[in-house]
């Protein structure tokens, strides 16, 4: 068919995949050989092929999270060969293609590992901790209706663009997965700095950062050591600068907010 590289040869690979029955049982790596993998396949399509084989053989297919398969929903979450979302930078697992691997390669596939992300099954983890952090303050408190005209608040293009860059976070959790401390700082900072930059978010900026950081700690994520692994592995390129904005927001809020609790 219309593959980009008609000369690319199919590959045979060895997969070592984390299998775990459920949250309460221990898991282990299981080895599966796969044959005839086209370099134009996406990584998840390669797993689809393996799963179809497993099904035909009557074995339990490998559970993994995925949905949009275009790199935007943030559902896919595989730790591939020691890297969150695999070896390509700026790429979600679903957008990773097999042309980045070689015939004969052994590929280790593990779930995101963090105390805050318990494994549901195989490669599927529970990332609801991230939702709870958002619920702690990742919003502007406006009800539907009764808002001013959209052009009533001019926002400098540079600010709007920067806020947009922070707002593109897809909440996949790769930052947590890649961080040696399983820290969620990059994730939290993306939302905090987006809303801190925009005039709409300024009214609640103090309570927002205090509450979101508190929730982050409650969920059991680690601390930030400024290794930069999170930003390096972020598939949408959320900048480390956001973490520093988060800290400034945090320090300013703690120093000046009326909140004594």
């Amino acid at each position: 068919m219309a593959g980009s590289n008609p000369n690319a040869k199919p590959m045979d690979l060895t997969l070592k995949v984390w299998r775990q029955k459920n949250r309460d049982t221990a898991g282990q790596l299981v080895t599966y050989p796969v044959k005839g993998i086209s370099p134009d396949m996406s990584f998840l399509e390669m797993l689809d092929v393996l799963n179809e084989d497993l099904l035909i053989r009557g074995e339990e297919p490998i559970a993994f999270d995925h949905d949009c398969r275009e790199g935007i929903c943030g559902m896919c979450s595989l730790f591939i060969n020691g890297r969150a979302h695999g070896p390509e930078r700026g790429t979600t697992t679903c957008q990773l293609h097999m042309r980045h691997f070689k015939d004969g390669d052994t590929i280790t596939i593990e779930p995101w590992r963090a105390a805050a992300f318990p494994v549901h099954k195989d490669l599927v983890v529970d990332r609801s901790a991230l939702d709870r952090i958002q619920q702690a303050g990742g919003y502007v408190s406006v009800n539907t209706g009764g808002v001013p005209d959209a052009n009533a608040i001019p926002i400098p293009k540079t600010v709007a663009d920067k806020a947009f860059d922070a707002a593109t976070c897809i909440q996949c959790g790769a930052c947590v997965a890649a961080c040696k401390n399983a820290s969620a700082m990059l994730f939290v900072s993306a939302k905090v700095s987006q809303l801190a930059m925009l005039p709409q978010g300024k009214t609640e900026r103090k309570t927002r950062v205090e509450n979101m950081v508190a929730q982050m700690d409650i969920e059991g994520f680690g601390a930030c050591t400024n290794t930069g692994a999170c930003a390096a592995e972020c598939p949408v390129g959320i900048s480390l600068e956001n973490i520093n904005i988060l800290r400034r927001e945090f320090i300013a809020a703690k120093a000046t907010s009326e909140n004594l609790a």
Binding site: G82, A114, G220, T227, A229
Partner: peptide, 29 residues
């Protein structure tokens, strides 16, 4: 913090390539 960080990832990865995303000293403070 180190204890908290360790607790944040009770089960470690079987394979890791942190050298691809961060410096050695930053990871070994």
């Amino acid at each position: 913090l180190t204890r908290k960080n360790k607790a944040a990832r009770p089960i470690d990865y079987a394979e890791q390539r942190p050298q691809d995303n961060s410096t050695w000293s930053s990871r070994n403070m």
